[in-house]
Design a protein around this nucleic acid. Structure first.
Length: 493
RNA sequence: GCUCCCUUCGUCUAGUGGCCUAGGACGCCGGCCUCUCACGCCGGUAACAGGGGUUCGAGUCCCCUAGGGAGCGCCA
């Protein structure tokens, strides 16, 4: 006997058995019951990359059949997150709530073909059944008592519809990540595909949608692995072509526990708010469970080129916030400054700093990008270029804005006033000359000036800082510092 | 309880029987550079869950145990 349809874990998933090229169609199918969390984003990223890599289509489908919990805000959060990350979809968003008629028709079809049946068991009855099975140390499942029910329907009971799952044999899932997984049909039961109010249930809508949308590769969280045999059975009953499956492991919090709000940033938009660049988050996420040798940095194009769903790790991965931070810093440092400036200006706006009231933000990015791990940090440290700071850092002012330095600052000021060109080079020259004149090392000059113009002992190189600040702001702040020193002198006297 | 999945440094991972006295990255610890903060550079710390097999040889193959996780809804 030959197993001609074996699709081993390492075969190219994008080929149908028999080497026929197949059109890749993946989908991301979140349910809009909350924010878009990183686990979902990683799944979406994998789906998107896989479609892009194979020149296929990426479909967005909103699974909103749970009317109680689905909200328009959540839909917006999903759309907003996808947009921010640049995970553009080729089709959709499709809403399941708009496809109810279709589901109803398929349920009717199954009923007519005797592949499904009405079940009149009450919830209490089912509950009792479950309890008894558990007591007998059995896996709780519906025993199919309505399957062969004869005679007239019980009066006054709205029935559910159950799918007639095969009672024997097994279902083989050749998962692109997990490998071959075999389920015995005896472990499965007749699941409800339509509730007593007629509405379709999840495992059923997924199947109908994946079939109708001609999804070739179902890439989803491995919490769905156990649902797969049921879905395959329905798909088979419907005569559909089976998609390939790839169940990606879950993402755990930094402590190895399941991801939750308590672990801090799990909402995609929270990463934006905390100053992360989308490319950093994407790069971080793609390396969570996937790798290409020792490579750590991947541009979007490289991801598309190198990614393969069959190379995804089979085990769950914990989030490492420090590494994300490192990647963010890397992208802040290496991305086109104009691109970084674009994102930075959003953060400036959030802090009510007007980035047009001062130096070109792109130049500020160039000066700051090696000293900020997040855009929030960069925005904080860059506000001084656009508006005056409120007060000096106490320790730094005490150390550097002292009476002995007054003359130095005055001397420097005089030179700066008459400087013909206000450039970093010219400023640099002046500072060097001043240091020489006073017989001081550069640091002894730079630090007092730094505290005078930015309020604390930390800033980009002093010449660049002054150049960005501009002559007007620099002189005004030197004056203010001199005044601060004299007040201090007076106070001490 | 039952079914399914998973298990290499603290974390993300390389590794597809000999190239492994297990490599890279983040973090951490030292050092260098330096006008501050950083960047950068150099060096160090640290892992094959345990036990049985198979084999001349096992991180790599098989089995068991332990530990994690998921599912078992008229939720998705």
């Amino acid at each position: 006997m030959f197993f001609i349809t074996i699709q081993s874990r390492k075969t190219t998933g994008a080929q149908a058995p028999g080497n026929k090229p197949m059109t890749v169609r993946t989908r991301f199918a979140p349910s809009p019951t909350g924010y878009l969390h990183v686990g979902g984003v990683r799944t979406a990223l994998f789906c998107w990359l896989y479609a892009r890599k194979h020149g296929g289509n990426f479909v967005l489908r909103i699974e909103d059949t749970d009317l109680q919990r689905s909200t328009a805000e959540s839909v917006n959060a999903i759309l907003e997150g996808m947009t921010w990350l640049g995970l553009e979809y080729d089709e959709g968003p499709f809403y399941q709530t708009e496809r109810m008629e279709r589901y109803r028709a398929v349920i009717q079809q199954l009923l007519e073909e005797d592949k499904a049946y009405h079940c009149y068991c009450s919830k209490e009855e089912l509950e009792t059944m479950r309890a008894e099975q558990l007591a007998r140390k059995e896996k709780p499942r519906y025993d199919g008592r309505c399957r062969s029910r004869k005679g007239p329907a019980p009066a006054g009971v709205a029935p559910v519809v159950r799918f007639k799952n095969p009672v024997s044999g097994s279902v083989v899932v050749d998962d692109l990540i997990k490998g071959r997984v075999v389920f015995n049909n005896a472990e499965l039961d007749d699941l409800i595909i339509a509730r007593s109010d007629g509405s379709p249930t999840y495992n059923f809508t997924v199947v109908v949608d994946d079939m109708d949308m001609k999804i070739s590769h179902v890439i989803r969280g491995d919490d769905h692995l156990n649902n797969t045999p049921r879905q395959i059975n329905i798909l088979t009953a419907l005569g559909a072509t089976l998609p390939r499956y790839a169940h990606v492991p879950m993402i755990l919090g930094p402590d190895g526990q399941r991801l939750s709000k308590r672990h801090g940033a799990v909402s995609t938009m929270q990463f934006r708010d905390e100053g992360y660049l989308p490319e950093a988050l994407l790069n971080y996420l793609v390396r969570l469970g996937w790798s290409h040798g020792d490579q750590e940095i991947f541009s979007i194009d490289e991801m598309i080129e190198l990614f393969d769903i069959t190379d995804v790790q089979r085990s769950a991965a914990s989030v490492n916030p420090d590494k994300l931070l490192w990647l963010n810093q890397h992208y802040i440092k290496t991305c086109d400054p104009a691109h970084v400036a674009h994102h930075l200006s959003w953060h400036m706006g959030r802090r009510e700093v007007d980035p047009t009231d001062g130096p070109d933000l792109v130049e500020v990015v160039k000066a700051q990008r090696e000293r900020a791990k997040t855009l929030v940090e960069m925005a904080e440290n860059s506000a001084i270029f656009y508006r005056d700071f409120d007060s000096y850092n106490e320790k730094d002012a005490a150390k550097h804005l002292k009476p002995e330095n007054a003359e130095l600052l005055r001397g420097l000021r005089e030179r700066l006033v008459v400087l013909p060109d206000w450039t970093a080079e010219a400023v640099h020259e002046v500072i060097n000359q001043t240091a020489e004149e006073y017989g001081l090392k550069l640091g002894k000059v730079a630090q007092p000036v730094r505290v005078a113009v930015v309020g604390r002992a930390v800033s980009p190189p002093i010449d660049i800082t002054l150049a960005l600040l501009g002559r007007e702001r620099t002189l005004a702040r030197l004056d203010a510092a001199l005044e601060h020193i004299s007040r201090r002198t007076a106070g001490a006297a």
